Computed example of a mutant assay.
Amino acid sequence: MELCYPDRDLTREILRCFGASGWQPDEASSRLLRQAETLLRSAATPRGIWRELPLTALEVDTCGDDLARHLHGCDRCVLMAVTLGSGADTLMRRLELTDIALAAAVDATASAVIEQLCDELESRIRREVQASGRYLTGRYSPGYGDCPLALQDDLCLMLDTVRGIGCSVTPEHLLTPRKSVTAILGTADHPVTGARAGCAHCLLRNKCAYRKRGTTCEN
């Protein structure tokens, strides 16, 4: 399905993706961010896909303790994927060769936009699933906590993301187009909340840029 490019001001989220949370951009930086947003808006083709399946469709036992805790009490799951499309990738590759500052601004803007699109699709899913009398956890993506990135292969296969939204997985289990996200939500016939992974078992905890700054990816 097609998703709507966000209309609200994402400056705060973009600066966070830049690693500059709380910084007040000067006029030159503001112009750069506006230019990046204009270029990305023209290049991106936001799309999303989702599917509800029995929890047994996933081999949760091989996906780490964090995901198992997140899905505890659930009997079904929702798989979702969102992408900005290949046009965004083409734009960033071109700018990386011609204007590295603008390329960085577009990259940060794309990261903020993809997060907003995930929120949009999750809200749609939540309304539809809750209308059937069921409850959902929050979303959880492969690569967080001790959940292996390789799970992306199965998620994309079960969602048929190649035909559905033009998104595939590399041999290194990375998504392409690169500004794409997969996630899992648990569903149940009773209230469930899921569980955040935290830093303790995160695969990136020893080289996390957020932890080096004394914060986390949630803040």
Rank of each mutant, 00 (worst) to 15 (best):
G87D: 06
G145A: 08
T182D: 10
S141A: 11
V78R: 04
A36E: 03
L91V: 05
T11V: 15
C74S: 01
D65Y: 15
E128L: 12
L91T: 03
G138N: 09
Q116M: 11
L151W: 06
L151A: 05
N206Y: 11
T38E: 15
Y210T: 01
D99N: 15
R94C: 07
G143T: 03
R51F: 02
A43T: 12
S86C: 06
A57T: 09
G166L: 11
V82Q: 06
R93Y: 04
Q24K: 15
L157E: 14
R8S: 11
R41F: 08
R51I: 03
L40F: 02
G145K: 02
T62L: 14
P46I: 00
P6T: 07
R16G: 05
G85V: 02
G22M: 07
T216D: 13
L79P: 00
G166W: 12
R94V: 05
V162C: 06
S168P: 00
R134N: 09
T83V: 07
L155C: 01
C202K: 02
V162W: 05
R127I: 09
R41W: 08
L71S: 11
A101C: 12
T56D: 14
S30C: 06
T182I: 12
C4R: 14
L84N: 03
Q35G: 14
S21H: 03
G164H: 06
K207R: 15
S29Y: 05
D65W: 14
S86V: 13
C217F: 09
D65F: 14
P54I: 01
V78G: 03
L185K: 01
P54Y: 00
P191L: 04
T137C: 05
R12D: 13
E172I: 10
